[in-house]
């Protein structure tokens, strides 16, 4: 196992004295499935976005696959971003375009400006898109406009768009926060399968502790911009969960007793 991603003392200040992230330090191995949990506003999204520089960190290093992302120029950053797929809570698809057009958007980073602008894709790219849609069970919706799909289907389109990048890593920003429990399970199963079968490293922001426990190889707990827990799901004690969420016993919907129920 080699280290794919390493964050060294990453900090982010939105204003002078309020730290969204302070001295974040952790590394992720290739092929690992890591969940980030923590209360709203703890900095989970900021953390994820600092990795692909959708948000610029204030200090520290983000080393991905041997290169320090924070030192990259515009072109280098674009190239690195093609290696990192991203999945969003609100899917962030172009709703007026068809499913397959949205999936092919994942290839834009590899294309010349003009070919991308005009939407000219190669035969292999189109075939790969169709393959991915079949794998995710969306082949009969291929030519539908995205705004006709349900939430769960939209998220699967989002996953296909990230996968067609042939990424080394997936960043998932609360992928199931807007979905019902059934769709949530389908999406998490898909992400887990993808991680295992394509050997893609996954870093997933989650609100649901039980989901994190069930799917992750490792869990990172964040509170007030600091990593307060970093370990295996089996090491996550009830006390630790309360520490992550800054809560008292009995204040959370989730309690350790339910751990084996899912």
């Amino acid at each position: 196992m080699t280290t794919l991603l390493e964050l060294k003392n990453v900090s982010k200040y939105y204003s002078k004295d309020i730290a969204a992230l302070s001295n974040i330090h952790f590394s992720i191995e290739e092929g690992e499935f890591v969940s980030v949990i923590g209360p709203s506003g703890a900095g989970k999204s900021t953390l994820l976005r600092c990795i692909n520089r959708m948000i610029e960190a204030s200090s520290g290093e983000v080393v991905f696959n041997g290169t320090n992302i924070r030192k990259l120029g515009r072109k280098g950053l674009r190239e690195t971003r093609t290696q990192i797929g991203m999945i969003f809570q609100h899917y962030n698809l172009v709703t007026r375009l068809t499913v397959i057009e949205n999936v092919l958007h994942g290839r834009l980073g590899y294309k010349s400006a003009v070919a991308g602008m005009l939407g000219i894709y190669s035969q292999e790219e189109k075939q790969q898109a169709i393959r991915l849609l079949e794998e995710l069970g969306l082949s009969q919706h291929m030519y539908k406009r995205v705004d006709q799909l349900s939430g769960g289907q939209k998220q699967r389109v989002g996953i296909a768009r990230a996968l067609i990048q042939n990424p080394k890593m997936l960043l998932c920003d609360e992928p199931i926060a807007s979905l019902d429990p059934g769709s949530s399970k389908i999406i998490m199963d898909h992400i887990k399968n993808i991680s295992a079968s394509y050997k893609i490293t996954c870093l997933v922001n989650l609100h649901q502790v039980d989901v994190a426990l069930k799917y992750s190889d490792r869990i990172i707990g964040v509170n007030k911009g600091e990593v307060v827990f970093n370990g295996k799901p089996s090491e996550l004690t009830t006390d630790m969960i309360h520490k992550i969420y800054g809560s008292e016993t009995g204040d959370l919907i989730f309690e350790a007793g339910e751990r084996n129920a899912g």
Binding site: M54, N92, L97, H105, L108, A113, M117
Partner: peptide, 27 residues
């Protein structure tokens, strides 16, 4: 135009003109 949509394409490495033509104008 939804900011998230632009962010999503940016995060996949798409360039500015590509985002305009593939996301902003169709929307």
């Amino acid at each position: 135009v939804d900011k998230g949509m632009i962010d999503a394409l940016k995060a996949s490495g798409a360039g500015w003109w590509q985002i305009i033509f593939q996301a902003v104008l169709p929307s």
